[in-house]
């Protein structure tokens, strides 16, 4: 399975000379296996995703949730304007609004000039919650995780590797932070022993102290979590828009020098390609 990181920024795209190393586009990752691609999240990174085979009719986009930084690239993804394409969008529903109404809020005026029903492609919507489903060679588990609004994380099993994707997650929410008991960790089953986990690491510990309840994690918490759930490798993502390349490098250096465990961790970078399995 090939993991390609297309967007790593949290909250808002942050382009400029200060973010060229890690990248300024918001959440988007593509996975490839046996020539089949699935797309995780439709942040601004989606805009530059190209299909591996332009002749392929079906495209699958899995959305963790509907915060703007995870869907703002959707309307600029060229296959949406191709009448020959069948775009399958998977995302969390809620008891009050189905996927169509949630998506339609964004893909309609005044936020977007084209109505979803007027898009030339065929759109097929799939509600996900605590679900399991298959797309080509991928077996996918989705589960609700702690983040404001209905938000899921994904565990994707390919032919010989498991990738876990939880870009927006605050598992330490509560007076005592993370509870190190697998029954009490949000998203545990999604992340358990994954070959690679791409996880929220928006804040430093100090910043997190002032942003409790915002739905994101400190990098330190994400590292502890990754160690506890036994992943082989962790990439921290959803970088704070205020963190320049210089700042991120400083934070990473500090984390590395403090870390005494075995975990292989790094900061996710736009353009990264990782072969798993």
């Amino acid at each position: 399975m090939k993991v390609s990181v297309q967007g790593v920024r949290g909250s808002i795209p942050t382009s400029g000379s200060q973010t060229t190393q890690f990248g300024g586009n918001t959440s988007c990752v593509t996975l490839m296996e046996d020539g089949r691609m699935i797309i995780l999240d439709g942040g601004s990174g989606l805009q530059k995703v190209t299909l591996p085979d332009p002749e392929v009719k079906r495209v699958d986009i899995l959305l963790t949730h509907f915060h703007l930084d995870h869907i703002q690239g959707l309307g600029f993804f060229s296959p949406l304007f191709d009448p020959d394409k069948e775009i399958h969008i998977w995302g969390p529903s809620s008891i009050t609004h189905n996927l169509h109404s949630r998506l339609n809020r964004f893909l309609s005026p005044p936020l977007f000039p084209v109505l979803m029903r007027d898009l030339p492609c065929e759109i097929v919507l799939h509600d996900v919650s605590n679900s399991s489903f298959e797309i080509g060679p991928f077996t996918i588990t989705s589960q609700f995780v702690i983040h404001p609004g209905a938000t899921v994380g994904f565990r994707i099993k390919g032919k010989s590797a498991v990738f876990a994707y939880v870009p927006d997650h605050e598992p330490a929410l509560g007076p005592k932070g993370l509870i190190f008991d697998k029954k009490w960790i949000s998203g545990f089953e999604l992340m358990e022993e994954a070959d690679l986990l791409l996880h929220d690491g928006q804040f430093t510990t100090e910043q997190y102290g002032k942003k409790i309840g915002w739905g994101h994690s400190s990098m330190e918490d994400a590292i502890q979590l990754a160690e506890y759930v036994g992943v082989k490798r962790l990439l921290l993502t959803h970088h704070d828009p205020a963190h320049s390349d210089t700042k991120l490098n400083e934070i990473l250096d500090a984390l590395k020098s403090k870390h005494t465990g075995q975990l292989d961790f790094d900061l996710a970078r736009e353009g990264m390609e990782i072969e798993l399995g």
């Binding site: 509560g174 007076p175 029954k183």
Partner: peptide
């Protein structure tokens, strides 16, 4: 046993504050 649903986890975290 499986992990509890987040609604249960969040109820525990709330209870822990009360």
């Amino acid at each position: 046993m499986a992990t509890y649903d987040i609604e249960i986890i969040l109820n525990r975290q709330l209870a822990d504050c009360l």
